[in-house]
Design a protein around this nucleic acid. Structure first.
Lengths: 168, 168
DNA sequence: ATGAGTTTTCAATAAATTTTGAAAGTTCGA
DNA sequence: TCGAACTTTCAAAATTTATTGAAAACTCAT
C-alpha cells in the first residue's frame, strides 16, 4: 500500500471511529491528519487536504485545542498560525480520559448523589429498585473515577507493566 | 425529591449521557427506564411512559436485545411480550465493553495491521511519522484488548479489589 | 492610521439521524 | 381457517447536527 492511500484510509477510519464515540467526523479527521503529519500545518493545508471549508476547519481546530490535543504554533517571521498534534499516543489517551472524566463522569456522580436521596419507603419495591440501581452506578462510577485518576497520573511504562502483571 | 421526579431525571440524564457515547437518546432512555423498574414492561408501557411511537420503541428494544442488555420475557398465559433489563451494573458494564470491543477495537486493530505495512523508505520523515503513529496506536490497542478481555472474565469483587490495590 | 494577510463568527443550507404511524406480517386460540 | 392481538417494517416527516462561505474582526508591518 502506498503512503498516500494508507494516510487516506487512516484519516477516514479515524473519522468513522470518532462518530461511535460522540466525536464529530471532521474533528477526528483533522486530528488524524495532524497525528500522521510530522510538520505543523496551517488552516489552509488542512482545508486542502481534507476538502472542508474554512469555517468548519477553524471551529474544529479550536475544539481540538480545547481538548488539549492540538497546539497552536507560531513560527517566527511567519504571519500564519501552524497547528500540531501531540504524537505520544499514551499522552493523547490520558488527555482524552482526563477531559471526558471532567466533562461527563464527575457531573454524573454529582447527579447520582442527589437522586439517591429520593423520598419514600425503602420497602416499596419501586423505591428500592431505584435506589439500588442509582447506588450501584455510583459505586462503580466512584471506583472508575479513582482508577482513571491514577491512570492520568501514571507513566506509560508503569501503567502497562502493572496491567500486564495484573491481567496476564 | 419525589420518586416520580427522580425517575424522570434519571431517564433524561441517562439519555443525554448516551448521546455523548454514540448511543441514541431513545435507546438509552428505554434502558434507563427498564433499569429502574423492578417488573418487566410491555412495549405499550414503555411507549406510554416515554411518550414515543410504537416503531421507535420496537426498534430500540430490539437494539438493546442485540447488545445483550435487555431480555424478552414471556409470561405464561399472556399474549404480550415483556421486557426486562439486567440490573447488576457490573454485568451491564461488562456486556457493553464486550460488545464495543468486538464491534470497534478488534476491527480497528485489524486495519492498523494493514496500514503498518505501508511501502516506502523509513528514512522519509513522512513514512516514519505514519508508521510510528500507527505502531503506537496498535501497541496501546493490543494492551487494551488484553486488559478488557481480563476484565470481561473478571468477577466484580476481584476486579475492584485489584484496582484498589493497584491504584490506591 | 492604513490595509493586506489572517482568523473568527454565524445565519443559512445541507446532511445525517431519529421518529412517526400506518400497513404488512406474525402468532395463536377457538 | 379465521380473526383478534400483537410485533415488525419502512417510507416519509421531523429533528438534530454539521458544514458552508461571506462578512466582520483582528493583527501587525509600514
Amino acid at each position: 500500500m502506498k503512503l498516500t492511500e494508507a494516510k487516506q484510509q487512516f484519516i477516514s477510519s479515524w473519522g468513522a471511529f470518532g462518530t461511535h464515540w460522540g466525536i464529530n467526523r471532521t474533528m477526528a479527521q483533522i486530528h488524524a491528519l495532524l497525528l500522521i503529519t510530522p510538520d505543523p500545518l496551517t488552516q489552509d493545508d488542512i482545508m486542502d487536504q481534507l476538502n472542508i471549508s474554512r469555517g468548519n476547519t477553524n471551529m474544529n481546530i479550536r475544539e481540538l485545542i480545547n481538548w488539549g490535543l492540538v497546539e497552536r504554533i507560531l513560527l517566527t517571521g511567519e504571519r500564519k498560525e501552524y497547528f500540531s498534534a501531540e504524537k505520544d499516543i499514551w499522552k493523547v489517551i490520558r488527555q482524552i480520559v482526563k477531559e471526558r472524566k471532567k466533562r461527563e463522569l464527575e457531573p454524573m456522580l454529582k447527579l447520582l448523589d442527589q437522586l439517591e436521596e429520593v423520598e419514600g419507603d425503602k420497602r416499596d419495591r419501586n423505591v428500592k429498585a431505584f435506589v439500588d440501581i442509582v447506588g450501584g452506578i455510583k459505586k462503580l462510577g466512584r471506583q472508575a473515577d479513582k482508577t482513571l485518576d491514577a491512570m492520568i497520573r501514571a507513566e506509560e511504562s508503569w501503567f502497562i507493566g502493572n496491567m500486564i502483571k495484573l491481567f496476564k
